[in-house]
Design a binder for these strands. Structure first.
Length: 103
DNA sequence: AACATGACATAAG
DNA sequence: CCTTATGCCATGT
């Protein structure tokens, strides 16, 4: 059996439309040992239906360098479609950073 | 068990 | 702005 990443998916699914959050933020919120786990979880389940992984970005606002689906363009396009402002593959965290509810 | 790899974060050059 | 390097921890070989 593999580690249960359910909490990560649950949290990602709670990200409001038009907002984004970072791997590290999720990791801290869920009390995970490392933000790498978050990325692993999302890469494992590229389920864009149940899990809006495109709303998860790196701490510096950069998008995933190796997005599992259509690539970087797809993620950026999805975010833009939800009203997220993007600047050269960089999300304006200042405006769109969503802080997950602590447990 | 040891080594290598990865959708990260932070620091340093 | 870029690339390296280190810490981190689960996975796969």
């Amino acid at each position: 059996m593999v580690t249960d990443y359910a909490p990560i998916y649950a949290l990602v699914q709670q990200i409001p439309k038009g907002k984004v959050t970072t791997y590290g933020r999720i990791a801290v919120c869920l009390n995970l040992a490392s933000p790498r786990m978050v990325g692993r979880a999302l890469h494992l389940n590229p389920d864009s239906e149940g899990t809006p992984c495109h709303r998860v970005v790196a701490s510096n606002g950069r998008l995933a360098p190796s997005y599992a689906f259509g690539g970087l363009g797809e993620q950026a396009r999805k975010l833009a479609a939800e009203g997220v402002q993007i600047k050269q593959n960089r999300v304006i965290l200042r405006n769109h950073l969503w802080e997950p509810g602590l447990l």
